[in-house]
Amino acid sequence: MKGSSAVEAGEVVSKGIASRRVMKRGLSVMDLVLRIIAIAATFGSAVAMATSHERLPFITQFVHFRAEFDDLPSFLFFVLGNAIVCGYLVLSIVLSIFHIARTTAVKSRILLLFLDAVAMGFLTSAAAAATAIVEVAHHGNPNTNWFPICQQYNSFCERVSGTLIGSFIAVIVLLILILISAVSISRIHHHA
Rank of each mutant, 00 (worst) to 15 (best):
F98A: 10
A137F: 08
L112T: 00
R102Y: 11
H138V: 05
V90D: 00
I110H: 02
F114P: 00
S92F: 07
V90A: 03
I110N: 05
A119W: 00
N143C: 08
L112G: 00
T131E: 07
S108L: 09
V136L: 12
L91A: 15
A117N: 12
L113W: 11
A117G: 14
L111S: 11
A105L: 05
L123F: 04
A119P: 05
V106K: 05
F122N: 11
H99I: 01
V106Y: 05
N141A: 11
H139L: 05
V134G: 02
N141H: 09
A119T: 10
L95T: 09
I97K: 02
L91E: 08
I110R: 09
S108V: 03
A126V: 14
V94Q: 01
S108A: 11
L95I: 07
A129R: 12
L89F: 09
S108R: 03
R109K: 13
I97M: 09
N141Q: 12
V134D: 03
H138Q: 12
E135R: 08
H138M: 08
L112N: 00
S108N: 06
T124A: 15
A132S: 15
A130N: 06
K107M: 11
S96L: 04
L91C: 13
L115F: 07
A126I: 14
F98E: 04
P142N: 12
Y88V: 06
A129H: 13
T104Q: 08
Y88S: 07
L111V: 15
L113Q: 11
V106I: 07
A119E: 02
A101P: 01
G140E: 07
L111T: 14
T103A: 11
